[in-house]
Computed example of a mutant assay.
Amino acid sequence: MADPVPVSSDPDALTIDPKTGELLPEATPAATIIVFREPRFGGAPELLMVERSAQMVFAGGAVVFPGGRVDPDDHALARSLDHTLEPDEAAARIAAIRETIEETGLGIGFADSPQGDALARARAAMHAGAVFSDLVRECGWRFDLAAMTPFTRWRPPFNNHRVFDTRFYIAQCESHDHIVEVDATENRHLFWATAAQALAMAEEGKVKLIFPTRRNLERLAQFSSISQAREHLAQYPSRMIMPYIEDRGGQQHLCIPDGLGYPVTSEPLSGAMRT
């Protein structure tokens, strides 16, 4: 079984499959925020999830966390900010913030939370083609990139039509008053649910989960608060995860390495939704 590969900014570190030694297909950098919200009346934290349009090439019809690809403007904006992060890491966090606004209207990762109407105007402008960095300057927004805690990073080694190198972060939504609305373009529905509720919905056939989302929800279901999740991450820092296929008892399984904090590390390939 392959050992986990530490996250690295060295581009050469991500070009070889650590299990097979083969050259990896080129991957598109992406970023995602897992937004935690404490429920009004106690219990496990709720997570913000979006259901992608069935027409989308990647994860069509599946329920995922808000996020998307890292754009050149995210890098440009990251370079203009005062931070101590590696360039790719800072750009990924900017991308996750931007995509969450575009997809849900929720502002996460800001030093001072923007007003809802300002977020709504910025969101509409981005949907009309406006550049995020221009909107940030016009609004005078400042970021708190440290509010986003690295959770995991997935990069399938398979030669699929689209391969994403996705950094996942966890962050807290402090208020129940934020209005979140689906973008009705890439996504068709959004909702708040505990990790256990989302998994139960998948078991009942109400939603579809791709392999990484299912594994991440199983991991998230272990936590009763975002502080507990962060304590867990002190033991299991964010690592690169590359799924692999392995024969187990005559049946092919899609697997991830042990020792990364995931309670379930494999699933029969026949039932796994990969993209």
Rank of each mutant, 00 (worst) to 15 (best):
S53K: 04
T84K: 15
D88V: 05
V70T: 07
M56I: 06
V63N: 04
P39M: 04
S53A: 03
R79W: 11
T84F: 13
M49A: 09
E51Q: 15
G67C: 09
L77N: 06
R52A: 04
A54Q: 11
V70L: 08
G60S: 08
G68K: 01
R69Y: 14
T32E: 05
H83C: 10
L48N: 01
D82S: 15
Q55S: 14
E46M: 05
R69E: 12
I94A: 02
A78C: 03
G61Y: 07
S80N: 09
S80M: 14
V50I: 14
A59F: 11
P45T: 01
P39V: 05
D71T: 12
A91I: 11
H83R: 11
G42Q: 03
A62R: 04
R40E: 13
E89S: 15
G61N: 07
L47E: 01
H83M: 08
V70W: 02
I33D: 13
V63P: 09
A91D: 11
D73E: 15
D88E: 05
G43V: 09
T84E: 08
G43Y: 12
G60A: 04
H83A: 02
G42P: 06
V35W: 02
V35T: 13
V57F: 10
M49E: 10
A91F: 15
A92M: 13
I34H: 03
E51P: 05
A91N: 14
F36W: 02
F41Q: 14
V50W: 01
D88Y: 03
P66D: 00
L77S: 02
G61C: 06
I34F: 08
S53G: 06
I33P: 13
A78K: 00
D74P: 07
V64H: 10
M49S: 06
A92D: 13
L85W: 10
S53D: 09
D71H: 09
P45K: 02
